[in-house]
Design a protein around this nucleic acid. Sequence first.
DNA 1: ATCCAATGTTGGTAGGGCCAACATATCAGA
DNA 2: TCTGATATGTTGGCCCTACCAACATTGGAT
Lengths: 155, 155
Amino acid sequence: MVCTMEPTPGAATPARLRTTPSWLLTQTAAHAARLVAEGLGALDARGYHYRLLAALDEFGPASQADLGRRCGVDRSDVVAVLNELAAKNLVRRSPDPADRRRNVITLTTAGRRELHRMGDTLDRVQDTLLAPLSPSERDELNRLLTAVLDHHSGR
Amino acid sequence: MVCTMEPTPGAATPARLRTTPSWLLTQTAAHAARLVAEGLGALDARGYHYRLLAALDEFGPASQADLGRRCGVDRSDVVAVLNELAAKNLVRRSPDPADRRRNVITLTTAGRRELHRMGDTLDRVQDTLLAPLSPSERDELNRLLTAVLDHHSGR
DNA sequence: ATCCAATGTTGGTAGGGCCAACATATCAGA
DNA sequence: TCTGATATGTTGGCCCTACCAACATTGGAT
């Protein structure tokens, strides 16, 4: 879905906007989000799902709070996403014997399989997104964005 | 207020995410949006308000449909934002004698003044956002984002 | 014991980005 | 000139990401 409400061709966008980094960033991100939504949507998933599955795959079983911290997802949102993932048997949620406050979230085999499928479609999405950039330009973009991101994070 | 639900320091973010352009983009954009919201919020405004005012200032009076097309804002959202701007006397909405379907939206003196105030705070926001980048890096980022944006737009 | 911190949950909120439908008005072609 | 396709302003609604507040339960530290 999403047909993007971007400035329509034929109607010039104000220069004040075109030259503002925050505008460039949010507009480009909107395109990225749209493409990601389309890609993951075909797999009946959203960005949040991929994030959590990726963290589970890379770091192994974890508590919900850990997952949220790693992926930048609020605790309350983690709950909802995990409910959905668990309903599809992509993860298992079991109480942590060592700390009864926690749940241990484990990636299932089906979950790992889905993760890979999502990863593949996301790879294609990146390519579509960055189509106009050369490999070195893509690297440079990644570098700059990472710098900004690191700066505004805990570091 | 938005305190950003970013990956918490101490908890590593999955490499799969850290190296994915679309993730870098949306996360950075989230920071940008947060900073913009804080800045404009202090002036009791939002991004949409700035966009429309900027277009009016740069291109003069326009119809609502034109404004929406120029700024990438849906017609229905333009209505709401214009209601708010008109309530504050920042714009005037009058029927177009030449085409009775349209309204002619005009920037008022107060509107132009507010626009400048917003522009000033947004300038500061850009500086905060891009703090870790050198001037040439900022230019490069702008260039790359513009390329991606142009590619995915009407061109 | 006590108090503070962390965890999982529920239930909101806000902004940006859309869509469908409608009445009214315009315009181009038959 | 009649007519069907289009454009415009409006209303009402939906979704996703990003948060926040509050609460009960469980751990930890003192």
